[in-house]
């Protein structure tokens, strides 16, 4: 055991360098794409070469072309920008949002977090006013009074009503999971077109329930562990216990889930493109490239290039995820 330790460390270092190297290369491609001397620009169809395999005679497409005649190499390199900017960004945001919401729901459950009634009144009044229901001005006044009461009175004001955090989060995840994307899109159809920021928001909105449920489930266990109880017994504020002790441990399952969520986000992004609210086809993306294999099932190069890039990214993230993070609960 001991004798093999240095070798193990060396291998781990090598693996880590490889993983970091790959991610750095993707980031570099994303940044430097426009400066590279490419034979073909992205989103330019070469109508003489449709769905040509890599290195075919008479074509200068090194990685072949897709069914619309776009150069796979150019799409891959420029697609790295989209992958880094949108897919990876959405994965990070969705995971963070999911971890926070799921962690809070699992920690406080339905009765742990109590809010004084003036705050409830403020929220109700604001909602009433926002919907322009009859008597909106009166509701606005009510909301103002409630807000003032919350700020001035603070914790001293009488009854505190619990916020059903757990039920809310569970309900939201169930709803988002059950509503098919197409129905959501129908509802969104009026608010087209989507900007990259809007697309990011849609991706995050549909992707956060997964991590949220994972973290919630883990949190249920963590809160039952002695070290959390001990921290509470010491009289530490609940928020601090949650943030410092409980959340880091509850987030452990995300180390595996995060890299995998990248794959599903790429798939989602190509679904959204199909529905007409995703990235337009002139924006190169790995997900879209992978999707073009649908019409050309024998074109292995359309799967190999983006699929390989995706696989290496997942493996690199997975490797880094396993190497870091808090140790086991003691």
């Amino acid at each position: 055991m001991k004798a093999s330790a240095p070798i193990g460390i060396a291998r781990a270092r090598g693996g880590r360098a490889l993983a970091l190297g790959w991610l750095a290369a993707v980031a570099a491609l994303a940044a430097l794409g426009p400066l590279l001397p490419l034979a073909y620009a992205p989103a330019q169809p070469d109508l003489a070469h449709l769905a040509t395999p890599p290195l075919a005679a008479g074509s200068a497409h090194w990685l072949g072309t897709d069914p619309s005649g776009r150069d796979v190499l150019a799409e891959m390199i420029f697609g790295a920008r989209t992958a880094v900017g949108i897919s990876l960004g959405a994965a990070v945001l969705a995971t963070a949002l999911g971890a926070l919401l799921g962690g809070a729901a699992g920690f406080w459950r339905n009765h742990g977090w109590r809010v004084p009634w003036p705050a409830w009144a403020a929220a109700l009044g604001a909602g009433w006013w926002a919907l322009a229901l009859p008597g909106a001005p009166a509701a606005l006044v009510g909301a103002g009074l409630g807000l003032a009461g919350t700020l001035l009175g603070g914790p001293r004001w009488g009854r505190r009503w619990p916020v059903p955090l757990d039920a809310g989060v569970l309900g939201a995840t169930a709803l988002l999971g059950a509503v098919p994307r197409l129905v959501l899109v129908v509802a969104l159809a009026g608010t087209l077109p989507l900007t990259p920021g809007g697309l990011l928001a849609v991706l995050v909105l549909t992707a956060w329930p997964g991590p949220a449920r994972l973290v919630r489930a883990a949190m249920l266990r963590v809160t039952a562990q002695p070290f959390v109880a001990a921290a509470r017994a010491l009289g530490l504020p609940a928020g601090r216990v949650w943030w410092r002790q409980a959340l880091p441990h509850a987030c452990l399952p995300l180390r595996t889930a995060f890299p995998l969520s990248l794959a599903s986000l790429l798939a989602l992004e190509s679904t959204l493109s199909f529905l007409g609210i995703g990235l337009p086809p002139e924006v190169p993306s790995w997900g879209h490239l992978l999707g073009t294999a649908r019409t050309e099932p024998t074109a292995w190069w359309l799967v190999a290039a983006p699929g390989g890039a995706l696989l290496f990214t997942i493996l690199a993230l997975q490797y880094l995820g396993r190497a870091r993070g808090p140790g086991p609960a003691k």
Partner: peptide, 16 residues
């Protein structure tokens, strides 16, 4: 119409 390669190709050619 989304999902039809022929139209996508036409669109890309026109755009280029």
């Amino acid at each position: 119409r989304a999902g039809e390669t022929a139209f996508e190709t036409i669109g890309l050619q026109f755009r280029a």
